[in-house]
């Protein structure tokens, strides 16, 4: 292992832990809130089961607005809200607030698009079999879209890692912030390069795991 990494070993592990917390919360929010929001968006579309133009347009607009924000500005814009929720706007816990909000918007859109790939006939067959909306979602939609949903989550996770590098502005820490503070600001270019290499390796592993899982569960 290069000396510079050994020298900063403990700081690097702390930073990786911070990234893990921020990205972990984002994935959780994406799954628990983003997926239902994306599913609801899909179901409210024209010609779908819960077609409702007003609800669809409103939700669609909110998702678009959040995704349109440059992430750094979103973090700053949300400071009062973060303070209200967490009690402080500084630190890793505070950083999870804007991260979860962007995660929900990001994954809901990707989930909605994944569900659009489910053949309409499958939904039609489900309705003809007497399936309720809940049955249609869990026994038909998610079953048919599962590999696309996994790939979308892979893409989202990689984006969350990228977003997490910005969280240094509110003291969120993380491996990206470490690379900026210790590598760039202290003129340790070699350290910065090593951190970038670590991040590239992490992203490659996540991408590989996502593609492998998606392929394994795709029986089409």
């Amino acid at each position: 292992m290069p000396d510079v990494l050994l020298e900063y070993q403990s700081e690097i592990w702390v930073s990786i832990g911070e990234t893990f917390i921020m990205v972990g919360f984002s994935i959780l929010a994406a799954l628990l809130i983003g997926l239902p929001v994306g599913t609801f968006l899909f179901l409210c579309r024209k010609g779908q089961l819960l077609e409702n133009q007003l609800v669809f347009s409103s939700l669609n607009l909110i998702v678009n607005i959040i995704r349109s924000f440059p992430f750094l500005l979103l973090v700053i814009f949300l400071i009062p809200f973060t303070r209200f929720i967490i009690g402080t706007a500084i630190g890793t816990a505070a950083a999870t607030v804007p991260m979860t909000i962007i995660a929900i918007a990001h994954y809901s859109r990707l989930a909605e698009q994944s569900l659009l790939d489910v053949p309409k006939g499958v939904m039609e067959a489900a309705v003809s079999m007497g399936a309720s909306v809940k049955d249609i979602i869990f026994k038909f939609l998610y079953v048919e879209a599962r590999s696309a949903l996994v790939l979308s989550m892979t893409t989202s996770t990689i984006s969350f890692i990228s977003y997490s590098t910005i969280m240094g502005v509110v003291g969120g820490g993380g491996i990206g912030d470490f690379a900026i503070r210790y590598g760039y600001l202290q003129f340790r270019t070699d350290l910065m390069i090593y951190i970038i290499i670590i991040m590239v390796i992490c992203v490659q592993i996540i991408q590989y795991a996502g593609i492998t899982l998606a392929r394994k569960i795709d029986k089409r």
Partner: peptide, 16 residues
């Protein structure tokens, strides 16, 4: 609907 079963031109099976 469960007593009025239906089949379609496309089989509409769950491919997974």
């Amino acid at each position: 609907r469960q007593s009025l079963a239906m089949i379609f031109q496309g089989h509409h099976l769950l491919s997974n």
